[in-house]
Each structure stands twice: as structure tokens, then as C-alpha cells.
Amino acid sequence: MDLSNADAPPADAASALRLIEEQQARAARQLNPDPRLFHWPWGVAWLVGFGLLFLRFGPDGRVFVDLPRWLPLTVLFVLLALAGTISSVAGARAYGQVSGESSRRGGWYGSAWFLGYASLMAVNLKVAGLLPEDLQGLLWSATAVGLTGVLHLAGGAIWLDRDMFLLGAWILVLNIAGTLAGAGWHSLVIAIGGGGGLLVTGTVARLRRS
């Protein structure tokens, strides 16, 4: 049978090993998408969104930039929705072909995010109206960021992912510090430390993978 060069078997053991390594690397790239897609969109959302919140609703009611009151939250929610879409599409393309225990674990973990934030919204909607306006904003941002940190810790423990676990711990430390500092300062801490931390995590993960 006449085989083309592309279909011909490896000429020696070294060529066969190199072919196996190339196939393994290709499979790894398909099953492990670019980590920047899971960190950079969220980092930009936090950096810009919480940054605008700080500029408009600063500590002790200070207004550093006289933006429309609706603008910071609108920008934050739009960027968060965009980040969620980017990460979801990247995850679906990479893990949609995975089945078995890993698939169930990922599905359950995704459900934890959905149910966790649904529960958070239900509680905050009941409680927020009892607080002054500045503390309402702090309640929403601190609880949402705190839940994000806890879920990152849980994900790191489930998959034994050191970077995810450390990122979750970092987010929680920032959230505690920002909450204790008070309304306004929390937005600044999360914008710089949280958004910057996500951008750095994605960059480091990409460099390590390369």
C-alpha cells in the first residue's frame, strides 16, 4: 500500500517519541485553554468597575470624579457579564468533550457558583434596605467578593490547583482589609489588589504553561 509522507509511520524510535509528545501537547492545549481567558476578563472588570466606584463613591462620601451615579455600577455589571461570557465559552470549548468524574465535578462546581450567588442576592435584598446608602454598597461588594474568594478556595481544593487556592486566599485577605477600612476604601482595595491580582495570576499561569 502506497502511503503519503503525512501518513507514513515514524522512521525510528526518536521520531515516534517526538510524534507522541506532539500529540500529547496538542491534547493538553485543547483540554487546558489559555488561562488568561479565565483571569484577565475578570481582572479588567474588577479594576475598571471597582475603580469607578471608588472615584464616584469615595471614603466619607467624597467624590473624586463627578460621574453620573448610575455609571460605575452599570460599567461593573456589563464588564462582569462580558467576563462571565468569555470564561464560559472558553470552558465549554475545552471541557465540553470531557466526560466522567471530571465532568460531574465541574458541573457541580458550576452549580455552587450559581446557587451561592442566588442565595447571596436573596439575603442582601432583604437586609440592604435597613442600612445607610454607603453601607448598602459595602454589603453588596464585600459579600460578593467574599463568596468569590471562598469558591476559588474550594476550586483549588477540589482540583489541587495551588494557583486557584492562593488566589482565593488573596481575595479573602483583601476583602477583609477593605471591609474593615470601610465604604469607599473597599472599592479601591479590590480594584487594585483584586483586579491586579487576577491579571497577574493569568499572566503567570500563561508564562508557566509556555
Rank of each mutant, 00 (worst) to 15 (best):
P59W: 00
P59V: 01
D60Y: 00
D60M: 06
G61A: 11
G61V: 04
R62P: 00
R62S: 14
V63A: 07
F64S: 03
V65F: 03
V65R: 01
D66V: 02
D66T: 01
L67S: 05
L67H: 05
P68V: 01
P68S: 04
R69F: 10
R69W: 08
R69H: 10
R69K: 07
W70N: 03
W70H: 04
L71N: 02
P72C: 12
T74Y: 00
T74P: 01
T74F: 11
T74E: 04
V75M: 09
V75I: 14
V75Q: 09
L76C: 10
L76A: 14
V78F: 10
V78C: 10
L79G: 12
L79Y: 08
L79H: 12
L79A: 09
L80I: 11
L80C: 12
L80H: 06
A81I: 04
L82Q: 10
L82S: 07
L82R: 01
A83G: 13
A83L: 08
T85A: 15
I86Y: 08
S87L: 05
S88M: 07
A90R: 06
G91R: 12
A92N: 11
R93W: 01
R93K: 15
A94N: 06
Y95F: 15
G96V: 02
G96K: 08
G96P: 06
G96N: 08
G96M: 05
Q97G: 02
Q97C: 00
Q97N: 08
Q97K: 10
V98T: 12
V98A: 05
S99I: 01
G100E: 13
G100H: 12
G100R: 09
E101A: 15
S102T: 12
S102A: 15
S102E: 15
S102D: 15
S103Q: 15
S103K: 13
S103A: 15
R104F: 15
R104M: 14
R104Y: 13
R105Y: 04
R105I: 14
R105P: 05
R105A: 15
G107S: 13
W108T: 12
W108F: 15
W108E: 13
Y109H: 15
G110L: 11
G110V: 07
G110Q: 10
S111Y: 11
S111C: 11
S111H: 14
A112W: 13
A112N: 07
A112D: 11
W113L: 09
F114S: 11
L115C: 11
L115Y: 14
G116Y: 10
Y117T: 07
A118G: 14
A118C: 11
L120P: 03
L120T: 03
L120V: 14
M121Y: 05
M121F: 13
A122N: 02
A122F: 10
V123P: 03
K126A: 12
V127P: 01
V127M: 02
V127N: 02
V127S: 05
V127H: 02
A128Q: 05
G129Y: 02
G129T: 01
L130H: 10
L131Y: 06
L131D: 09
P132R: 03
E133H: 04
E133I: 01
D134I: 01
Q136W: 04
Q136E: 14
Q136T: 00
G137Q: 06
L138V: 05
L138P: 03
L139A: 07
L139I: 03
L139Y: 01
L139G: 04
W140R: 00
W140P: 06
S141E: 12
